[in-house]
């Protein structure tokens, strides 16, 4: 699509200063993301993929280098780069509706009427097929539903970029597959730019335009990037027979388990 450098990461270094000393998490990260592109970050645990996501979100500040989004430096968190958290992070004292409305109100509250805000919130709930759960609290719904509310909350703010930190990691395989399909539909409909952290090879190949594979930490960096040239819409059942799918898949597996074989004692 239009802007080839919608997200532009240049020479980013990340060093954490902890009580035990300094920890060099990321080095020499250079990456550009096109507008409307779906990127997944994959790597072994501890490779700093979540750190990179948090840097794009603005939740962390880089030790060196710059991150740009739409030609503006990422100075802090913002609703235009909304995050779907790994553990959904819904506020347990608010209903599903209120959880989504909180963000909607913040982004559109100054320019739109109450009815319009309500309309937006209900649309977001409908987008993830949870209209019926409007008045339920997070502890009354299943894990998959919670994650869907988390996605709805992020999408309702009409972000420029959707950042997802292992959004389906804690779900069972069936629910995960179902949500992946829903996400594909939503992304196709909203033309969102997505950066997603995952540790699931199938998920990465199924969803991404490009798979960014990270080397092992400490001082992790981008190892290889796989261009997934599978046409959309993608159908997981048809793809299972597709030779190209298998090829992409083994390319990622090759990288993860041959080139970056994790020491067994540290493997999660």
């Amino acid at each position: 699509m239009d802007d080839p450098k919608f997200i532009d990461i240049e020479g980013v270094e990340m060093v954490f200063h902890t009580k035990k000393g300094t920890f060099h998490a990321l080095r020499e990260i250079d990456l550009t993301v096109r507008k409307g592109e779906f990127i997944t970050l994959i790597g072994h645990s501890g490779c700093g993929k979540s750190t990179l996501l948090n840097l794009i979100a603005g939740l962390l500040k880089p030790s060196d280098g710059v991150l740009l989004c739409a030609n503006r430096e990422i100075a802090g968190p913002s609703p235009e780069r909304s995050v779907v958290f790994q553990n959904h992070s819904l506020l347990p004292w608010l209903t599903c509706y209120e959880n989504i409305h909180l963000g909607v109100e913040r982004v559109f509250g100054k320019t739109e009427s109450k009815a319009q805000l309500r309309e937006r919130t209900m649309q977001a709930l409908a987008l993830v097929s949870l209209t019926a759960a409007e008045t339920k609290r997070p502890h009354e719904i299943s894990g998959g539903m919670k994650q869907r509310v988390g996605i709805a909350r992020a999408l309702a703010m009409e972000p420029k970029v959707l950042l997802m930190d292992e959004p389906f990691g804690a779900l069972d395989a069936l629910t995960r597959a179902h949500l992946q399909d829903e996400l594909l539909k939503i992304v196709a409909a909203t033309q969102s730019t997505v950066v997603m952290v995952t540790h699931d090879v199938d998920e990465a190949v199924l969803l991404s335009d490009r798979i960014v594979m990270m080397t092992n930490g400490p001082a992790a960096t981008i190892g290889e990037i796989v261009d997934v040239k599978l046409e959309r819409p993608r159908d997981r059942v048809a793809l299972a027979q597709d030779a190209r799918y298998t090829e992409y898949r083994s390319a990622v597996l090759e990288f993860l388990y041959r080139k970056q074989a994790h020491p067994a004692k540290e493997a999660a």
Binding site: S142, H178, R236
Partner: peptide
């Protein structure tokens, strides 16, 4: 993870 989407939906409903 490569399962039919149709079979996934009722499973999620049953779980809840």
């Amino acid at each position: 993870a490569m399962l039919k989407p149709d079979s996934a939906e009722p499973a999620a409903v049953a779980a809840s």
